[in-house]
């Protein structure tokens, strides 16, 4: 039971990261019906920029770790959001009317460019986040020997706050309503006086910004990363989005948590060889969900438009 609870907490934390990244995939898919393959690498760039900033900020802000992390997060959100907007402008917007295949290839190309840039920026080495960061956070004892570390709590709170904020933004504000309208139909939205291009730009800012924050959190949690992080993690986050029902914001969150928990549990209880197969779990889960319920857990059945 104790092991189970501990694993549940670990799974929830990792699931939170998946969920944050999955939000970006699901929002872009919602408005453009495009798999934004570059999203995973933008997330990785969030880790990379966060690492560079924290390394620079740790010395001048000694003893104020939270302040350093806050500044880093805000800057990373801005930078990665701007990267997202740029990629949309350069690689996706010219292909808006070019059918299904072209934008996907362009997205893959953008992902490769981002990854190659990161590879050369890090000289293909594993980079380590500053040590001793946030190590004084108290850990909260739960029942038995189970404890929730301060870092995990902080991350869960951050994830949940961001997700609730995004949900409220999309559901309650005028711009959020416009976003939902655009995801239903571009042309009719335009007739209703919505500037579709602006909404898409906004989506391409918010999604990568959330992914960037996710990148910083992942860096803080695992302490080290390299340039290949983005592809695998991004792919899994996309699978989380499909799991919950693509195009659906609560679905992405749910899918992220489900994937995180299933992955942790399977690794913990799967026996000796399970950890080697950890990465395959998400893919097998994907194939199962696509056979059993292709619309995802929360997705409603929509006949494909003809």
């Amino acid at each position: 039971m104790e092991k189970f609870l501990q694993q549940l907490i670990n799974g929830l934390t990792i699931g939170g990261f998946y969920a944050l990244v999955a939000l970006g995939y699901t929002m872009v898919y919602g408005v453009l019906k495009l798999i934004n393959f570059a999203h995973g690498d933008m997330f990785m760039w969030g880790t990379l920029v966060g690492w560079a900033l924290l390394a620079a900020l740790v010395a001048p802000l000694a003893g104020m770790d939270l302040v350093a992390i806050l500044i880093t997060s805000v800057v990373v959100m801005g930078v990665i959001g701007a990267v997202g907007v740029t990629i949309e402008r350069v690689a996706y917007r010219p292909l808006r009317k070019a059918g299904r295949l072209s934008p996907v290839i362009s997205a893959l190309g953008a992902a490769f460019v981002l990854e190659a840039l990161a590879r050369n920026a890090t000289e293909a080495r594993v980079k380590v986040y500053p040590q001793n960061l946030l190590e004084n956070l108290p850990s909260i004892p739960l029942i038995g020997g189970v404890s929730l570390s301060g870092l995990q709590l902080l991350m869960l709170i951050t994830c949940v706050l961001l997700m609730v904020g995004l949900y409220a933004f999309v559901q309650r504000t005028r711009i959020g309503t416009a976003m939902r309208a655009v995801s239903l139909d571009h042309d009719v939205s335009r007739l209703m006086g919505i500037n579709v291009d602006q909404i898409i730009t906004l989506v391409f800012f918010i999604g990568p910004a959330l992914g960037g924050i996710g990148g910083v959190l992942v860096g803080l949690y695992y302490r080290s990363f390299d340039f290949t992080l983005g592809w695998i993690f991004g792919l899994k986050a996309f699978i989380a989005a499909i799991l919950g029902g693509i195009g659906n914001i609560p679905g992405a969150v749910l899918g992220g948590f489900v994937l995180g928990i299933v992955e942790t549990m399977a690794t913990a209880y799967g026996g000796a060889g399970a950890s080697a197969w950890k990465d395959a779990i998400a893919y097998i889960l994907l194939i199962i969900i696509l056979i059993a319920r292709p619309t995802g857990i929360l997705g409603e059945t929509v006949a494909e438009k003809v």
């Binding site: 292909l95 290839i105 190309g109 490769f112 190659a116």
Partner: peptide
């Protein structure tokens, strides 16, 4: 060799824009 993937990616984006 360091930039091979990146050049490939750039070529993919460019080709899709110029000659889909």
């Amino acid at each position: 060799t360091d930039w091979r993937d990146g050049l490939m990616g750039a070529a993919m984006v460019l080709m899709m824009i110029l000659r889909p």
